[in-house]
């Protein structure tokens, strides 16, 4: 098992955002988290990447307890994240943004840059434009590309399709599949439950800080209660 979240509780001040969430991600999988607004999906990802501290519970990565490891060290271990709202560095160019992803690396980066530019030709055209002046969809590409530049074993993607046109959404999902087939494990948070579930090996449904259901993606697509709540009821 690559990533194992064991019964974690996370608080914002006194408010409990996660109330005993457990989940597992195996090497090579695409795993999705779906759930309503405020269910705790972003918090779960932030806790895995080390931006939020745990109140209790454990996070194991490659069998090693990383619950107390600071975020920047988890990056080196192989956890990459494209944050919600993208978090692109506005005053850095596209290329500088991507190179920030390789901040801890000292090896040759040309191959990795080429790979990201191959996945997102749009970024290659705009490599010297400021991140802050890129469109929403383009910023999403920067965020994903930048996370890939950390050479992650598992990449955490927080709503990569947010605010994108349908054409671009389809494109992003096929890129996620491509990233996965090149050997990166993916933990995906999505509002677009339909497409996320189609793509996922397994998925978890979150409700107010708890996992209420977990099953292979295809099964959840046909689950009546899931269809009702997250897939528009048909």
């Amino acid at each position: 098992m690559l990533l194992e979240v064991k019964d974690i509780n996370v608080h914002y001040g006194k408010i409990a955002a996660l109330k005993g969430i457990s989940l597992e991600v195996n090497e090579g999988e695409i795993v999705s988290l779906i759930g309503a607004n405020g269910a705790g999906k972003t918090t779960t990802l932030k806790t895995i990447s080390g931006l939020r501290p745990l109140t209790s519970g454990k996070i194991l990565f490659n069998g090693e307890d990383i619950s107390k490891t600071p975020g920047h060290k988890r990056v080196i271990m192989g956890i990459g994240q494209a944050p919600e709202g993208r978090g692109v560095f506005p005053g850095m160019t596209v290329q500088e943004n991507l190179l920030m992803g390789a901040y801890t690396r000292k090896d040759d980066l040309t191959k990795d840059l080429d790979e990201v530019y191959g996945l997102f030709p749009r970024l290659a055209e705009r490599r010297s434009q400021f991140g802050g002046t890129m469109s929403g969809g383009e910023q999403q590409m920067i965020a994903i590309g930048r996370a890939l530049m950390t050479k992650p074993k598992v990449v955490l993607l927080d709503e990569p399709s947010m605010g994108l046109a349908p054409m671009l959404i389809a494109q992003i999902f096929s890129i996620i599949k491509e990233i996965n087939s090149r050997g990166t494990t993916v933990l995906l948070v999505e509002q677009n439950a339909q497409q996320a579930l189609k793509l996922s090996d397994r998925a978890y449904v979150l409700e107010t800080g708890r996992v209420v259901k977990s099953a292979p993606g295809k099964d959840l697509l046909n689950d009546p209660s899931v269809r009702e709540a997250y897939l528009g009821g048909h």
Binding site: L51, H72, P83, F89, P90, M100, Y103
Partner: peptide, 25 residues
Amino acid sequence: SRVGRAWAAIREDEDAAELMGVPTF
């Protein structure tokens, strides 16, 4: 230097900087 680059990242988005492996603190 690398230090300056890390500061710029922290200034622009501290959480994102940490996610790039910058020891922000």
